[in-house]
């Protein structure tokens, strides 16, 4: 399919949905700086901005392919809202992990949740869930386990994981995907509950 010389966002989205997978490249290039700037101005950290930017476009691609996007000519506004929601998710996690800290980038161990007053039962449940998850991770094949640990326990980006394990980013992403599938399979087989209320 040939692209028009100056296609609108609407044209490009439609072309993408119709199967021209290259049209998303133009959309990304057209809006990347505004979206990256929005994320960076709020989180003020390049590594984190890159992760959120990447997650934003993965969500965009996923939504377009699943037909979840209703085009009303406001593609950029839609993508900015996705980025904004991911930023909120980030700050919610920050709040959970480090309840009282005012500094988003330096962890103060005395401000950790561990030192907050809590219900002993909640602590037990939380510990049990963490133990169960650790056991699940231990059961994964070594290459998948490595990616999960580096991503979710050490907080590395997929780029850093790829560098550190000497594989491509796609391989690292693929290993994470298979790790998820395997973990979900075990959870279902054993009827495990990993929900903390």
């Amino acid at each position: 399919m040939k692209l028009r010389q100056n296609p609108t966002d609407y044209d490009l989205v439609k072309q993408y949905i119709d199967g021209n997978h290259d049209s998303i490249d133009i959309l990304i290039n057209r809006h990347k700086d505004r979206i990256y700037t929005y994320i960076y101005l709020i989180v003020k950290n390049h590594q984190l901005s890159e992760d959120i930017f990447q997650d934003t476009f993965i969500k965009v691609i996923r939504s377009l392919r699943l037909g979840k996007y209703q085009d009303n000519g406001k593609f950029l506004a839609w993508v900015l809202r996705i980025a904004h929601n991911l930023i909120i998710d980030h700050f919610r996690r920050e709040k959970q992990n480090n309840t009282f800290s005012k500094d988003d980038y330096e962890l103060d161990i005395f401000n950790s949740n561990k030192f907050c007053e809590g219900n002993c039962e909640d602590d037990l449940i939380r510990d049990q869930i963490h133990d169960d998850i650790r056991e699940l991770v231990e059961e994964l094949p070594p290459d998948q386990r490595e990616v999960v640990i580096l991503r979710h326990y050490k907080g590395l980006s997929f780029k850093d994981i790829a560098d550190q394990t000497d594989v491509s980013i796609n391989t690292a992403l693929g290993r994470m995907r298979y790790a998820l599938i395997n973990m979900r399979k075990i959870i279902e087989e054993r009827n495990m509950s990993l929900t903390f209320q």
């Binding site: 990304i28 990347k32 990447q54 476009f57 993965i58 691609i61 997929f158 780029k159 980013i169």
Partner: peptide, 10 residues
Amino acid sequence: ELVERIQTFN
């Protein structure tokens, strides 16, 4: 590089 990663993902 970041943009390229997304395009590769796509």
